[in-house]
Amino acid sequence: MEFDKPVIGGPCWAELGTTDLEAAQRFYTEVFGWRAEPDPRQELRGYAIAFVGEAAVAGLGPLYRPSQPVAWNVSFAVADAETATNKVTDAGGTVIRGPLEVLDEGRLTVALDPSGAAFQMWQAGQFAGAGLFNAPGSLGWVELATRDIKRARDFYTEVFGWSVNASEWYTQWGMHGGEFGGMTRIGDRYPPDMPPHWLPYFAVEDVDATTGVAVTAGARTLLEPSSVADGPRIAVLRDPQGAAFGVYQAGQEG
């Protein structure tokens, strides 16, 4: 990711929704060295902020409805949640929740793109998003997996104004001349019932070592550590509660 702070239109936060907050905090603390601090406000139901040093890097929260899958969710920064939410519906997406006030922290919208991939939009109040990107333990790349590349490209460029750098094999998303994420087609290497989704990648010092720690802590490996042609070394894992996430070698971000 070629940004070092939240940028309007770009990813600003990664947030886990899980069935076991305490277990998730133990797992990710072991894997990334995070320090998790639960928010004491009852309205947030134990939501915890994960820190690397003094910088907030991710959120760990409960599921808010029975149908919500255990998953990592990616939030994109917007200047005005109302306007952005209207753009989602105009472009063919579906609004699940919001815009809603999250105390004095900001305004949140949860939405689905036309293929059904969930994402979030965040209008900053007192909280702008992650305070660190690309460093070990922090968010460094976000990737959409979908079966309809063209429709997804049309949708996200209309909603967020992203630039597109596409090859035959991969699409990269950008803002203001900097790239922050990509898009891949759900094909034969995915399970047949795999739904479209956004996947966050966190930077680590050593992909192979982190994968080993995660597996020992109860994770499953979905993509073994491997080096991407002209790209970073990566792996994709599923945590003990079922949420998928990626890791990549710090210093090799796009």
Rank of each mutant, 00 (worst) to 15 (best):
D4G: 03
P11I: 02
C12Y: 02
W13V: 01
A14T: 11
L16G: 09
G17L: 05
T18Y: 08
D20S: 08
E22H: 12
E22M: 14
Y28R: 11
T29K: 09
V31N: 08
F32A: 04
F32H: 03
G33Y: 07
G33C: 09
P38M: 07
D39W: 08
R41E: 04
R41F: 05
L44W: 10
L44K: 04
R45S: 13
Y47K: 03
A48F: 02
I49E: 06
F51R: 08
V52Q: 13
G53D: 11
A55D: 13
G59I: 05
P62E: 07
P66N: 06
P69R: 01
V70M: 03
A71N: 08
W72V: 15
N73L: 14
N73G: 10
S75K: 00
A77N: 01
D80L: 04
A81W: 04
E82L: 07
N86G: 12
K87R: 15
K87F: 07
T89F: 06
A91D: 00
A91R: 12
I96K: 15
R97K: 11
R97S: 12
G98W: 06
G98P: 09
V102I: 14
V102Q: 10
D104I: 00
G106L: 04
G106V: 10
R107V: 15
L108S: 07
T109V: 12
V110P: 00
A111F: 08
L112I: 00
D113W: 06
S115I: 00
A118C: 00
A118H: 05
A124K: 07
Q126D: 15
F127Q: 08
F133S: 03
F133R: 04
F133T: 06
F133E: 00
N134V: 06
N134D: 12
G137F: 03
L139V: 09
G140K: 12
W141H: 11
V142S: 02
T146S: 14
R153Q: 15
E158N: 13
F160G: 09
V164C: 10
E168M: 05
E168H: 02
E168I: 06
Q172P: 01
W173T: 03
G177W: 08
E179I: 10
E179R: 04
F180M: 03
F180R: 00
G181R: 02
I186Y: 03
R189N: 11
P192D: 14
P192I: 09
P196G: 11
P196V: 13
W198P: 05
W198C: 05
W198A: 04
L199R: 01
L199I: 13
P200A: 09
F202V: 05
V204D: 09
E205N: 15
E205C: 02
E205S: 14
V207A: 10
D208A: 14
V213C: 03
A214Q: 12
A214P: 12
G218D: 05
P225N: 11
S226Q: 14
S227A: 13
S227K: 15
V228D: 02
R233V: 10
A235R: 06
V236A: 10
L237V: 01
R238K: 12
D239Y: 09
P240E: 10
P240M: 07
G254Y: 02
